[in-house]
Computed example of a mutant assay.
Amino acid sequence: MSTFSSKQYSWSDVSISIGGRIIEGVTAVEYSVKQEKEALRGRGNKPHQITRGNKTFDGKISIWQSELEAMATSADLLDVTFDVIISYVPSEGGNTVTDVLTGCEFTEVKKTIKQGDKNMVVEMPLAFLDIKFQQ
């Protein structure tokens, strides 16, 4: 009998830590790794292999303005390097998954609020050095 579980993760299962502090005011997180790839061509009209180039890591975090202001009191947000830890802990059982984004830096601070908004959510683009999946 298999012990495979297909439990799904939901937003309520996610904890995000920035610089060692769990952030309550995160409303979205996105991160990715991309790699340059190109077909290696030679004899004939079909490629012979896929060649690989540099990897690029980027993402973004949407965060309450109040959380952002709390982080900004200690330093200029564009000058700080930190790790982001994203943990998926299913409330109904299943495996905990933790991804670590290392050497993160914010690339832009852009605040926007409009009439009718109940709070400000700031989208903070990230550049980082590596993703350590399933730590």
Score class of each variant (00 low, 15 high):
Gln35Gly: 07
Lys37Gln: 14
Gln35Asp: 00
Gly44Tyr: 00
Phe57Gly: 01
Glu38Phe: 09
Phe57Pro: 05
Glu36Cys: 06
Leu68Gly: 03
Ser87Lys: 15
Glu69Trp: 09
Leu40Val: 13
Ser62Arg: 14
Met71His: 14
Ile86Pro: 00
Lys55Arg: 10
Val89Met: 14
Leu68Pro: 08
Gly44Lys: 03
Ser62Cys: 10
Arg52Thr: 13
Thr81Glu: 12
Leu68Ser: 05
Lys46Ile: 08
Ala39Pro: 01
Arg43Glu: 10
Ser66Cys: 11
Phe57Lys: 02
Asn54Val: 08
Val80Ala: 07
Glu38Leu: 08
Leu68Ala: 04
Asp83Phe: 01
Ile50Ala: 02
Thr56His: 08
Asn54Phe: 09
Asp83Asn: 14
Gly44Cys: 02
Tyr88Pro: 01
Leu77Gln: 12
Lys46Asp: 09
Phe57His: 02
Ile61His: 05
Ile63Thr: 03
Ser74Asn: 07
His48Gln: 13
Phe82Val: 01
Gln65Tyr: 15
Gln35Glu: 03
Val80His: 13
Lys55Glu: 07
Thr81Asp: 12
Phe82Cys: 03
Glu38Ile: 09
Trp64Gln: 13
Thr56Asn: 11
Glu67Ser: 14
Ala70Asn: 06
Leu77Cys: 03
Lys46Leu: 09
Ile85Ser: 05
Lys46Met: 10
Asn45Phe: 04
Asp76Thr: 03
Ser87Glu: 14
Met71Gly: 06
Lys37Asn: 12
Asp58Glu: 14
Asn45Tyr: 04
Ile61Pro: 01
Trp64Arg: 15
Thr81His: 11
Glu69Gln: 15
Ser87Gly: 05
Ser87Ile: 08
Arg52Glu: 15
Glu36Met: 07
Gln49Lys: 15
Arg43Leu: 07
Thr73Gln: 14
Ala72Ile: 06
Ala75Tyr: 13
Val80Ile: 13
Glu69His: 10
Gly44Thr: 02
Phe57Asp: 04
Met71Arg: 12
His48Ser: 11
Leu40Ala: 12
Ser62Thr: 13
Gln65Ala: 08
Leu68Tyr: 07
Ala70Cys: 01
Ile61Leu: 07
Gln49Tyr: 11
